[in-house]
Simulated assay, not measured.
Amino acid sequence: MGLLEQVAPNLVDVLRRDAWWMGWNTFLAWIPVLLACLLFRGQRVSRSPFWWAGLTLFVLFLPNAPYVVTDLVHLRGDILMADRGGPVVTAILPVYAVLIGSGFLAYYLALSAALRHLARVGLGDWQGRVALAAHALCAIGIFLGRWARLNSWEPVVDPHATLERIFVHLTWTWAPVLILATFLVTWTCHFMTKAIAEASFKATLKSARHLHTTLTS
């Protein structure tokens, strides 16, 4: 029996068990990318109220992208349901790696679009501070999403109850520690994703230029 025939049934089991919540969280993670494509196209700061409303949605949904790293809480349960060590390495871990990689790729793309827009409108000096602010915002958002079970749309549809829940959880004794840890994880994973994505882009561009040179010579 080939490796694919051994892995396929285990992979199907994992996807059947986790497809719904993984698919939903991946969908939420890529909403900021869609919003970024719509928002960050101009050459100047927009004064449209619709643009600023879209920016508010972008800020609210941005933490959904790095939030996927907290889905590792489900990993232990999937490992316990595995029959032996093989499915963990060949099926469960790759699925979680794709999930988390997809989320941080979405985060990198969305944040990069926002930072490039700052440069286009003459605010390039703010890029570093905005990036750090985004990581901090996402750390708080991830904390509220995982521990307060707060959804991105709740501040809009139920602001009063949302503010109460935010206050209660942010005043929890362990909140600063968890938020700081989440910030460090978010910053580190974004740094790694950025390095891999930009290196891959440069390698692809170099290969494309080499192929173009070969075909035209």
Rank of each mutant, 00 (worst) to 15 (best):
G2N: 15
L3A: 07
L4A: 14
L4F: 15
L4E: 06
Q6R: 15
V7E: 12
L11Q: 04
L11H: 03
R16W: 07
R16M: 07
W21F: 15
M22A: 00
W24P: 03
T26Q: 00
F27A: 10
L28I: 04
A29C: 08
I31N: 09
P32A: 04
V33I: 07
V33Y: 04
L34F: 09
L34S: 13
C37S: 14
L39K: 05
L39N: 02
F40C: 06
G42S: 11
G42Y: 06
V45A: 14
S48E: 14
P49N: 08
F50L: 15
W52H: 15
W52N: 12
A53H: 09
G54E: 01
L57V: 09
F61G: 03
F61W: 04
F61C: 07
P63M: 13
N64I: 11
N64L: 12
N64P: 08
A65K: 07
A65G: 12
P66I: 00
Y67E: 03
Y67W: 15
Y67A: 00
Y67D: 04
V69D: 01
T70I: 09
L75C: 03
R76I: 04
I79L: 15
L80Y: 12
L80K: 12
L80N: 11
A82K: 00
D83Y: 10
R84D: 02
R84Q: 07
R84I: 05
P87Q: 12
V88R: 09
A91L: 02
A97Y: 10
V98Q: 13
L99V: 05
G101Y: 11
S102I: 00
G103E: 07
L105D: 02
L105E: 06
A106K: 02
A110T: 01
L111C: 01
L111Y: 00
A113G: 12
A113Y: 05
L115P: 04
H117D: 11
A119R: 08
A119Q: 08
A119D: 13
R120C: 01
R120W: 10
V121I: 14
V121H: 08
V121N: 09
G122K: 09
W126Q: 12
G128D: 05
A134E: 00
A134R: 00
H135A: 03
C138L: 03
A139I: 02
A139G: 10
F143C: 06
F143A: 05
L144M: 14
G145W: 07
G145V: 08
W147Y: 15
R149I: 01
L150C: 05
N151H: 04
W153Q: 11
E154A: 08
P155E: 14
D158R: 02
P159E: 09
T162Q: 13
T162H: 10
E164V: 12
R165T: 08
I166P: 09
I166C: 14
V168H: 13
H169K: 02
H169A: 06
H169Y: 13
L170E: 03
T171C: 05
T173E: 13
W174E: 09
A175F: 07
P176E: 13
T182L: 01
F183T: 01
L184H: 10
T186G: 01
T186F: 00
T186V: 04
H190Y: 04
F191Q: 01
M192F: 15
T193H: 02
T193S: 03
K194E: 03
I196D: 07
I196M: 10
E198A: 07
E198I: 08
A199F: 14
L205S: 11
S207G: 04
H210C: 06
H210F: 05
H212M: 09
T214G: 06
T216V: 15
T216I: 15
T216W: 15
S217W: 15
